[in-house]
Write a protein that binds this DNA or RNA. Structure first.
Lengths: 246, 246
DNA sequence: CATAACCGTCAGAACGTTCGGTCGGCAAGT
DNA sequence: ACTTGCCGACCGAACGTTCTGACGGTTATG
């Protein structure tokens, strides 16, 4: 039943299709592979899935690439390289912590957008294999850098002291990293627009600026919240406009 | 049919182990399964992995559960139920949008923490199967609700108008959802502490409150930023302490 | 109070399928 | 003639799932 010797003229169509398309190299193949990984998850993507998307056979993939894991490794390396280049650039400056932190956030958003597929993959790694474990460790060391910057800025009195620095750092970059879950370059949402939005929200908060109400709704400028300012704004905020309710 | 009375000593060890342990039911099995899913990813977890962790065989799992996917479905349902119960509760009130939004954020953090394993799984779904696609749709409809609340609060003049509402909403819940990536109940980090931290950061920003500097470092209270307030705080903030730079 | 019927729980051994990966060879450009 | 890009056939292992049946405990009956 089995044991079909060898040879065969093969179908000329298949060859033709391969010839007509621009042949793959490692780079173009990687691009597609990572896109599929991000759609279906790394574990959820089989080499056959990849081959189908590439329009070539599984074995053809192995002509360009050593293993499935190598594809992942290349992606993770590019993501990590982007992040650590960023911290190196910022570390070379001598601004105060708060400004370095802001630069880190802005730069973080830029790296995330510029290398979206790579960073997306990095953010989803769970540490199953040795490679993933390594990537996870590097990522953690990046997070530590952020946390220490936050701590320093807090010591400088430049960011609110009523939240734990580690917690702040995680939430801050949690917000940044969430970009990977929804940002698509095709949304014609400018990179700079996102950078500004993140920076504003993170540093100034989403509530209408107290110092200078913009447009309508005037506010008694600069009112001092009753010290425990965040407990609950449901009472005593004295805010007009509350009656609007839809 | 199966009239095989007593006979066969078989292996006493294996049986004994099963008998000595409190037997599994769907609930206890689900708990372990979801923990493993969250460690290794759903696709990265085989039924054999599960059986190893449970201390029973693969076939024994199928005595309690119809399929691997059913385990996922149960988890996703619990996560979604938590989120939509929350929006139902909030929808029943008639507070202004900004306060409902804050309640949604606080409640979102609480749901996420209370049902951490379930929500974590939900947040990692990529829409491969029909089930995942359904979960993804439901999640999207939740996000839409958030976005509309943000839009309304912005129309009320209660949150900053210089950021697109959809963008704001995504970033806001991006921050909330990032909890799933690092929060562990064992960190003895109180739930309420996290809720407050998220709320403060999201609504007031992480910069030291302008209206009322706490502790040291005085700030010229209530200075009016030059209208385009967020462009870059590197210049002109007039902040002292900048000299500290480590 | 014994015992037989029945139940939930699980092991063991398979099922067919799909996995990541290998191999020999063909076609075309240089 | 050699390299580059690829195909089709194939492998052993692992996958999710199913089947048969053994075991301990409960319950109903005599």
């Amino acid at each position: 039943m089995r044991a079909r010797p060898r040879a065969k003229p093969a179908s000329p169509d298949a060859r033709g299709a391969a010839a007509r398309r621009r042949p793959y190299d490692v780079e173009s193949l990687l691009e597609v592979a990572i896109a599929v990984f991000n759609e279906q998850g790394y574990d959820g993507t089989s080499m056959e899935d990849l081959s189908r998307r590439l329009g070539i056979t599984k074995s053809a993939i192995y002509h360009h690439v050593e293993s499935k894991e190598q594809l992942l490794r290349m992606a993770l390396d590019r993501a990590l390289e982007g992040l650590f280049t960023l911290v190196a650039d910022i570390g070379a400056t001598d601004q105060p912590a708060i400004e370095r932190l802001e630069a880190l956030v802005r730069g973080g958003v830029e790296v995330l957008i510029d290398r979206l597929p790579y960073v997306t993959l990095l953010l989803r790694v769970r540490g199953n294999t040795a490679l993933e474990h390594y990537a996870l460790e590097r990522r953690r060391s990046f997070d530590t850098i952020v946390a220490e910057l936050v701590k320093q800025a807090e010591a400088d009195g430049d960011i609110r002291p009523d939240v734990d620095p580690g917690l702040t750092a995680r939430l801050l970059f949690g917000m940044v990293n969430s970009l990977a879950d929804w940002y698509r370059p095709s949304d014609h949402l400018e990179r700079s627009e996102v950078v500004d939005a993140v920076t504003r929200l993170a540093f100034e908060g989403l509530r209408t600026p107290r110092g200078q109400p913009m447009g309508s709704a005037q506010v008694p400028g600069c009112i001092a919240q009753p010290s425990g300012l965040g407990e609950s704004s449901l009472l005593g905020s004295g805010r007009a406009g509350a009656a609007r309710g839809k």
